[in-house]
Amino acid sequence: MTAPDVTTVPAVSIRDLWFAYDGPPVLREVSFDLAAGDFVSIIGPNGGGKTTLLKLLLGLLSPTRGSLRVFGRAPDAARKRLGYMPQQISLDTSFPVTAIDIVLMGRLGNGFPAGPFRRADREAAETALRDVEAHDLRNRGFFSLSGGQRQRILIARALASGPDLLLLDEPTASLDPAVQDDLYELLTRLNRRMTIMLVSHDIGVVSKHVRTVVCVSGQVAIHPVEAISGELARVLFHGAEDVKLVRHDQCEGGHPGHPPGTRHATHTTAGHSERR
């Protein structure tokens, strides 16, 4: 994270964004800013567009309408400054690959990808492994690791390129609560030097750690996390005890006019779609 960005250019700036796959819009009338250095969670029901929003930020999808800027540039152009950890690596668990192999993948794309990795790449990968406190796992087979260890390796892969914005898709899904807490501690530490945006189902856990919550369910609104963790959570989710069970119609009452800024939650409603 470079100093000028903190004060001038927002990490993410979205204006009147619409997105549809083939059918009805998954996201509509989305407008919000996120300051650099923020720690943001995207929450919302399944099919509400959380992962879609993430993929738009990564430039894997293009908006149907509207504009989306990452550090003031188009997502494609800002890609070098993004670190990404996908929700799930859906692979056969016998893929022969070690932890360091995976972290080194984060160093690809620096020049034409021919020949072995350079010393600088190897050092960056080792550093990333130390950052996530998993350096001792470097030569272990990836699929012999526990769920929490694997997540750390995938975070290290995202860190290896030295990103200014770290995007994580459900990093704590299917982990023990204790392991989840460790992971959030790690992310909080990383947040000192980069903007972090993560998708989560679990508002209860998230609200303890993040500063801004973006609620996505077709539309988006932004709220300070203090409000989310208190009464607003019940308002947003109609008193649902377990936010993991939230349905499309329960995430409503967006605040499109809410001024963007830090310590806000963004809240999105409407738009039903089976695809994310």
Binding site: K80, Y84, F95, I102, L104, M105, G109, P113
Partner: peptide, 23 residues
């Protein structure tokens, strides 16, 4: 295999991530 070991490994392991790294 010698020249493109790394990008081919990345494409086999996680195509989406490889694309994001500009491969």
């Amino acid at each position: 295999a010698a020249a493109f070991y790394n990008p081919l490994l990345a494409v086999c392991f996680d195509e989406e991530f490889a694309r994001l790294r500009g491969i």
